[in-house]
Design a protein around this nucleic acid. Structure first.
Lengths: 257, 257
DNA sequence: CGGTACGTTGAGATCGGTCAAAGGTTGTGG
DNA sequence: CCACAACCTTTGACCGATCTCAACGTACCG
């Protein structure tokens, strides 16, 4: 298990947004980790538990989530392969939210102590990872705006646009068509709506020829209008600082699934 | 202008959550900055503009904000003296949101280049500041839950609880009583409601003896019940990792206003 | 072939929004 | 010290987007 391909992909991804030297990449490669597979809906991180692990998604999708006492679940963000989820774990003592697998996924788990040691010795890596958490925060902010100030149509359209863009960067979307592995209930939890209303809005999008949805595959038929409904402005993804149209950093070339 | 007191306070605040050495404090002290006063509602950072500055709030309150195309404004977070707002500025190229003064406030503005240089040379400081941004992100997440999955009463109660706790830590709240310098319109923008409905809920809280509001001073009469309505669990503030009940790091001792 | 999980649809209820107008409060200038 | 203006708060009447409840349809899986 020397030099797994996803570490190299990670290094490539980070170096797009922040300068990373050779010694840094070496340190990244030397990082001890343990692979673990999680089934759909399995908990990867539990709120309230000590944050002793950091999780890199190697394949599959995961999401952050919190539950209100009323029983309502709120999905905070969805994460794709290549995302470091629970990086806070290296810096905070207690997990303040849950992380759940959206699809079956493979996770590389890095112990807190090893990651911290690396961060202290390799400031450039720390900065590069910091940038990632700061972009995460930007996505959280956009979600606050989305849920707080857009109607149901806008919220769902926005989520569809964001997904399309992020998957496109990873090379996982083709021709505005991609697999959205979320049930309508999960979409509802992500947008602060109810499953029933999500259904109605999606049906409406479908009927008016905006999108097509077969099984869980979404095809965007009218990107411009969907963006207009979503009030979608991708600045918050901070793509310009990174890939935009370059070769995707993920999936790792040596291990295309 | 050698050794302004708020730099020392800053160092004290940071060192509570992350180890900071003497050399680091010295670097912090050496950081060049420019003081600027902003009137209420003035823009401190503009969305879309190059993120070339980082702002430390020395006195007063400020908030982050985004506007949807519908015209609705969403307040993303409120920041208190001692908060480093726009730290992303050091790491990202473009501001993805606005920052506005909630009250007249004094801001220490640090140029991006100087801050970056300091971060590269003093990894411990970078980690300490990183922790601050990660806690900010945790607050964003709680806000998503608040707006997405709590009703109007819950949202407002939560905001009141959070404010009370954060001001208490700074030593700005006494006996569950504090000045909340937000108009009802601003409260509405922070909770994803309308000013009219904010008014109704606050009146209701008042009538049922939960809180008292005179001018902009809030007194919490029944903390336990307010917390229950708010579903308030302060884990997300990550206080245990810092001050809790210790002497407040702010305001700076040498310059108590 | 039956079960389980997910999607779809309808009818009615409700929380919060919209519109509109009338009090308060604060500050300013005459 | 008053008068006015600007801004904020409060209240009422009505409306509508979204929720709730409930049923039925559909697809996959063992």
């Amino acid at each position: 298990m020397s030099q797994p391909p996803f570490i190299a992909a990670m290094a490539r991804k980070l170096s797009r947004r922040s300068p990373v030297g050779e010694a840094d990449v070496a340190a990244l490669t030397a990082l001890p980790f343990r692979m673990q597979t999680f089934d759909r809906a399995a908990y990867i991180v539990r709120e309230g538990k000590p944050a002793d692990r950091t999780c890199l998604i190697v394949s599959g999708f995961a999401y952050r989530q919190k539950v209100a006492k009323s029983g309502g679940r709120q999905i905070l963000s969805v994460h794709l392969p290549g995302d470091f989820v629970g990086l806070e774990g290296a810096l905070l003592d207690v997990a303040d939210h849950n992380v759940q697998a959206l699809t079956r996924c493979e996770i590389a788990i890095v112990p807190r102590a090893d990651l911290r040691a690396m961060l202290c010795e390799h400031p450039a890596l720390a900065l590069a990872l910091w940038v990632e958490t700061v972009i995460d925060a930007s996505i959280f902010r956009e979600r606050i705006l989305n849920i707080g100030r857009r109607d149901a149509r806008g919220r769902l359209a926005h989520l569809l646009c964001e997904f399309a863009r992020r998957l496109e960067i990873l090379g996982l979307a083709e021709q505005q068509s991609y697999e959205l592995p979320m049930t309508q209930e999960e979409l509802a939890d992500a947008t602060g709506l109810t499953p029933v209303h999500v259904n109605r809005v999606l049906r409406d999008f479908d009927r008016s020829g905006l999108i097509r949805r077969v099984n869980r595959v979404v095809t965007i038929l009218d990107w411009d209008q969907l963006c207009a409904i979503a009030d979608f402005n991708e600045t918050y993804l901070h793509l310009d600082q990174s890939a935009r149209a370059r070769r995707p950093a993920w999936p790792p070339a040596a291990a295309a699934s």
